[in-house]
């Protein structure tokens, strides 16, 4: 596989709560992913929506065309808070409909893709080992290199997000709305 070249990078450090993400509940996982993606994409593309910002090497298409940017979310732990909320609700009397929409990790990537008009592949993986804050798991970078080598994307936004253990509480229980986690996003292209 070709080496990767980093176009932009962003971190969401542990302890800094991400802004709420409308349409997502019970877990900070999805707000975390959206927030770090926003930071990284803004650093390279500028404004969301139609392309037109930096047109440097590795940039896709002409102004006005969607970006052939893939999205790859890697999380060893996944959104355990949502998974726990779903299991808890299933055993109870009412399942909040929003939990259906966030029941898989692709959903928040759809939010990011729509906001930034990213039309590349949408991929979610679960590395066997979590990355330390500020780092990306090697599995994620290898996956991104595969996507770029395959040719359906010109760039890939690689995001890793991990919840801290204490966020794994179902909605309505103390600590569920808060909690912490960390996330890192890197926009890469073929080197």
């Amino acid at each position: 596989m070709s080496p990767l070249r980093t176009l932009a990078a962003a971190h969401w450090p542990p302890g800094e709560p991400p802004p709420p993400l409308p349409g997502f509940a019970a877990s900070i996982f999805n707000p975390l992913v959206a927030a770090v993606a926003e930071r990284c994409l803004a650093a390279h593309y500028g404004e969301p929506g139609a392309p037109g910002a930096p047109s440097g090497p590795g940039e896709s298409g002409e102004s006005g065309e969607p970006r052939r940017t893939g999205l790859l979310l890697a999380s060893a732990g996944g959104d355990r808070a949502t998974a726990l909320a779903i299991d808890t609700a299933a055993a109870g009397h009412r399942m909040p409909p929003l939990l259906f929409f966030q029941s898989n990790p692709n959903a928040v990537l759809g939010h990011v893709a729509a906001r930034w008009q990213l039309t590349g592949p949408v991929v979610a993986i679960s590395p066997l080992e979590a990355a330390a804050p500020g780092e990306l798991p090697p599995d994620a970078l290898e996956s991104a290199a595969l996507l770029l080598a395959d040719g359906d994307a010109d760039q890939v936004l690689v995001i890793t997000a991990e919840l801290a253990e204490r966020t794994e509480r179902p909605a309505g229980e103390p600590g569920a709305a808060g909690g912490t986690g960390h996330a890192t996003a890197v926009l890469v292209t073929a080197g």
Binding site: G110, H111, A113, Q117, T119
Partner: peptide
Amino acid sequence: GRSGDAHHVCRPRPDGAGVARAVRS
């Protein structure tokens, strides 16, 4: 082929353009 709709959290792009790109690829 693989593609993204760049449309919504869970709804498909109504014109199917994303699916069409994956097929063409």
